[in-house]
Simulated scan of single mutants.
Amino acid sequence: MGRMNSAMVIVVMGVLAIASCAQAQLSLGFYGQSCPNAEKIVLDYVRSRIPKAPSLAAALIRMHFHDCFVRGCDGSVLLNSTKIANASQTEKVSPPNLSIRGFGFIDGIKALIEKECPGVVSCADIVALAARDSVVTIGGPSWSVPTGRRDGTVSNFTEALFNLPPPTFNFANLTVAYASKGLNITDLVLLSGAHTIGVGHCTSFSNRLYNFTGRGDQDPALDSNYAARLKQKCTSLADNVTIVEMDPGSVRTFDLGYYSLLLKRRGLFQSDAALTTNAAAKAFITKLVSSPPEVFFQLFAGAMEKMGRIEVKTGSAGEIRRNCALVN
């Protein structure tokens, strides 16, 4: 798309300024005095349940991403559609979020923390902590989660449509979407690495198999053998039930397999394949694949902490919800 126009630059600079101000107000161990057992409650809950349902790790990290990309990391994705939520339809029921799982999981943690410290720990912080702890529990990387986020009181169906990058985005669209949140190309590549434990519904990519340009054709960027296997699972454009592993064979292992597949033209979503259409992004992916997994873990950790700071509400902004699905 070439250079961003001046208006986009101003928007991005504004977002970065806001984020910079908010970052200073988050801190490690924020609840050390007000609810000292908060983080242990989250960790214990995760450790007792994720081993029995490891696929929830991918669901929770996706929930965290979807929360942060709309109104910042403020728990707005958790709100039910009620008039009290200041919107007739909330993010939760917007098309990009219809396949999100784990709301009951977050509610379970919140209930335990409310018994321990009523009205102290935000739902937004619980989502951020649960995402990290669940990934660690399945053997993935850990990262710092500074806390002190407060919960938003607004959740809007339309904002989710406009802010969440869809699986059909090309590289130019992805970079603009990430830049609007203060994230760069490196962050884009690293955060996409979470797809190593993810799955996708056929409807998210079946156009690549059956109708890429509207002429009943297949995406030429997709490896033909991989496409043939996908067609055996997703037998039509209309299949909205079947799910497919994004990193076949190691969907429960947080590793570099996702990136290796991208270099073989086996990225599931168009937005995955798009990462190899940019020279700098592709070179970075190639370097990751040739490096020890620990390098990816360390870099991914930094990107996750950065994402977790997007437009957070702190201080007196927002509220601490008593019920994550409802404003107070």
Rank of each mutant, 00 (worst) to 15 (best):
R252I: 05
E114I: 10
K264G: 01
A160D: 05
N80E: 15
A38R: 02
G193K: 04
G72C: 03
D247T: 13
N163Q: 15
S192H: 05
A179I: 05
S81E: 02
P141K: 02
G32S: 15
D151Y: 04
K287I: 07
D133Q: 04
V244P: 00
A301T: 02
F65A: 09
G249W: 04
N97H: 06
S122T: 14
L190V: 00
S316V: 13
S20L: 11
E311V: 15
R62I: 05
F30S: 13
H66P: 13
V121I: 07
S94H: 06
I310N: 13
G108D: 03
N240L: 07
T277C: 01
A128F: 03
S94P: 08
G72Y: 03
N170I: 03
Y210A: 08
T286Q: 15
L230M: 02
K264T: 00
G318Q: 05
Y226P: 00
S316E: 15
D223C: 01
I320Y: 04
N211H: 09
M13A: 15
I138Q: 03
L190D: 04
I61A: 04
S291E: 05
V289Q: 10
L222R: 00
S134Q: 01
S192P: 12
V46S: 13
L230V: 01
I61Y: 11
N328L: 11
S48G: 14
G152H: 05
I84F: 13
L190Q: 03
I197T: 05
F212I: 09
A53L: 15
F103C: 12
A228T: 13
V136R: 09
R322S: 13
Q89Y: 10
L261I: 03
E116Y: 07
V154G: 06
Y226K: 00
Q218K: 12
S20Q: 11
K233W: 03
G119I: 01
D133Y: 10
C117K: 06
A228C: 07
F65Y: 10
I113N: 07
S88K: 12
S142D: 15
R266P: 09
V241S: 08
T286V: 14
C68I: 06
S6N: 14
G214D: 06
S99V: 11
L275M: 01
C35K: 07
V176M: 11
L261E: 01
G14P: 14
L288G: 10
S142L: 09
V244E: 00
C117A: 08
L16V: 11
Y210H: 11
L299W: 05
I113H: 10
G2P: 12
I84S: 15
C324E: 01
Q33K: 14
I126P: 06
S76M: 08
R132T: 04
N240G: 12
